[in-house]
């Protein structure tokens, strides 16, 4: 007999994040996430290609306003994500522990994730200065090159780093004015869904970040082939996977960015070249003189 004061715990349903909403997968399919002893931790949405398509539509719609937002505002919003994450750090540590990470390492990962967001927030109004140029030309033109965001970025996040690896790929893409659709780690998906809640509470406009969970072998092809995606980033996979992605991406000449074997916990994993990866260089020839 249960005492009158005890209550039934309310378990969280882990859903996907599309266009600022948390729907279940359109396909109605789920897969069980298990701990080391084989106990089911949660049922995770097995995202479908239609979920991906809907995400790309949302990301495309969000792109115009997000890319036009001032660098200052984008920096502020990234900083806001870090603030929100800091306030919910314990939850993320607990989720990492639930997925088999030691408490000490979990704590370190969450801290590193927050710091990484601050790092890219700081770059929001600086990378343009570093990567833009006034070019010497042998004619009477003022010639300069500036960066512009490429558009919708599809990210297949690293499998072995559920939170830090995810955020390390989202942050440089969105700070540069891109919108993104991310496939979370298949092995460690819990933090991705919770991170979506943090994003949602941080004034990030709907559609700028979309996070799906599901199986790589089902979705990689879609990520690489969708004609309305401008860049695809992948963080795992052998040469076969890499080749397939490049072949499919060639149809609309996507940027293909491989971040295989990156150690996301190291300082070397954060640098402004990750921002530049998803930027286009626009060069202007402006006539001068008579």
């Amino acid at each position: 007999m249960v005492a009158a004061t005890s209550r039934v715990p309310v378990a969280k349903t882990y859903k996907i994040y599309i266009d600022g909403k948390f729907p279940r997968t359109e396909s109605g399919r789920y897969f069980p996430l298990k701990d080391d002893e084989g106990n089911v931790i949660a049922s995770i949405c097995r995202g479908s290609r239609k979920d991906f398509r809907n995400s790309v539509v949302a990301a495309r719609n969000a792109f115009a306003a997000w890319s036009a937002a001032s660098a200052y505002l984008r920096g502020q919003i990234l900083y806001r994500i870090a603030e929100m994450l800091e306030g919910r750090a314990e939850q993320f540590v607990a989720e990492l522990v639930l997925q088999g990470v030691s408490k000490r390492r979990a704590r370190a990962e969450v801290d590193a994730t927050i710091d990484r967001l601050i790092y890219y927030a700081g770059w929001s109004d600086k990378y343009q200065q570093v990567f833009s140029a006034v070019n010497p030309v042998a004619s009477s033109h003022f010639n300069f090159s500036v960066l512009e965001p490429t558009g919708v970025v599809a990210v297949i996040a690293p499998n072995d780093s559920g939170l830090l690896g995810l955020v390390s790929n989202i942050a440089p893409a969105i700070v540069g004015g891109n919108t993104c659709v991310v496939l979370a780690s298949e092995l460690l998906p819990l933090c991705a869904v919770s991170f979506a809640e943090v994003v949602h509470a941080s004034d990030v406009p709907a559609g700028v970040v979309n996070i799906l969970t599901g199986f790589r072998d089902e979705l990689t092809e879609q990520f690489a082939s969708h004609m309305d995606v401008n860049a695809v980033i992948f963080c795992d996979g052998d040469t076969d996977v890499s080749r397939d992605i490049q072949v499919l991406a060639a149809d609309n000449i996507k940027r293909v960015i491989s971040r295989v074997d990156t150690k996301w916990s190291e300082d070397a994993a954060q640098n402004p070249y990750l921002i530049k990866d998803t930027q286009e260089t626009k060069t202007t020839w402006h006539p001068i003189g008579s």
Binding site: Q222, S225, H226, D228, D251
Partner: peptide, 9 residues
């Protein structure tokens, strides 16, 4: 084509 399309084309 089996491939999702973009309004760009």
């Amino acid at each position: 084509t089996g491939v999702y399309q973009s309004a760009d084309y």
